[in-house]
Nucleic acid binder design. Structure first.
Lengths: 155, 155
DNA sequence: CGGCGATAGATGCAAATGCATCTAAATTGG
DNA sequence: CCAATTTAGATGCATTTGCATCTATCGCCG
């Protein structure tokens, strides 16, 4: 019940989130304006990136949706656009008649790598000078921990 | 050139950002689906929130734009909507004929508080169990440091 | 098996967003 | 002091997004 200096847990959590959120906004601002994203929007690149990390090469649409801050319908149409541009290919899921599997085309993989290289350079130029290697590792640890503690995503 | 275990600074920065970004997406997903944002979109609330923190009560539109991940034109229209709903009031900047000053109306302040209370509860329920108080403080320190190291925002 | 709620995705439609551009006011440079 | 450039914000228009809904398939339970 001490007055000075002590902060309520609720307030601490809120301020922590606020800080995380603003940092994300500020970094994203810079990244978006970089030349890496002249050919593709960030969300579109993110889909290609996620697909490029997928071990099997194929990924379900709904799993993809967990990574992206987009509604299901928006992702559906985003993927439609990517397919129209020849960057991804779709295939009905063999074991589930409702599902759709996605993978990169060769062209999609090429573009992902091209943008990715530049993107990584931009990130490094922003984050590298801001935090020491130890701080970056700690930040990664904390954000990983936060994310993994959240449980399954809503809906 | 050692192979095992050592990671390049570039890669570390990229993975750190990736982790921060995904955590933000995951938390934001949960928050968006909460009942706090039935009356107002997150970006709209964010504007009310920022205005509520503003010491003078008045804030320039372009300053507001730095906080939000929105283009200038989108923010312009977002504010237009908020004004139409009676949540904010506009006034030409006295010292700069181009500028617009914004402040909350009483109704806007009321709504911000109402949503804010719920929002803070949601945040606390997500972040509180995930990280210790010390970890939250460290996360806040690191994200603050990151943001403040970025320099002025583009455009 | 057969019906029934749940889940995956697609689609119509209204709303929000971004890009390019425009206007007006401030700043700069001669 | 005036012309040229820059900056703040608004607006036309095409694209993107989300909500609600629809269809089809899956999984469950009688």
């Amino acid at each position: 019940m001490a007055a000075g200096g002590s902060e309520s847990p609720v307030r601490l959590a809120a301020e922590t989130w606020e800080s995380l959120f603003r940092a994300q906004v500020a970094v994203m601002r810079k990244l978006q304006s970089g030349r890496a994203f002249r050919k593709l929007a960030v969300n579109e690149y993110d889909v290609l990136f996620t697909l490029s990390r997928c071990p099997s090469g194929w990924l379900r649409l709904n799993e993809l949706n967990d990574n992206v801050l987009l509604s299901q319908s928006s992702l559906s149409r985003l993927v439609e656009r990517l397919e129209k541009r020849g960057l991804v290919a779709r295939m009905p899921a063999p074991d589930d008649g409702r599902g759709i599997l996605l993978k990169l085309t060769d062209e999609g993989r090429e573009l992902q790598k091209e943008i990715g290289r530049e993107h990584v350079r931009d990130i490094s130029a922003l984050v590298g000078p801001a935090l020491t290697a130890a701080e970056q590792k700690e930040l990664m640890r904390l954000t990983d921990k936060l994310r993994s503690s959240l449980g399954p995503l809503p809906k």
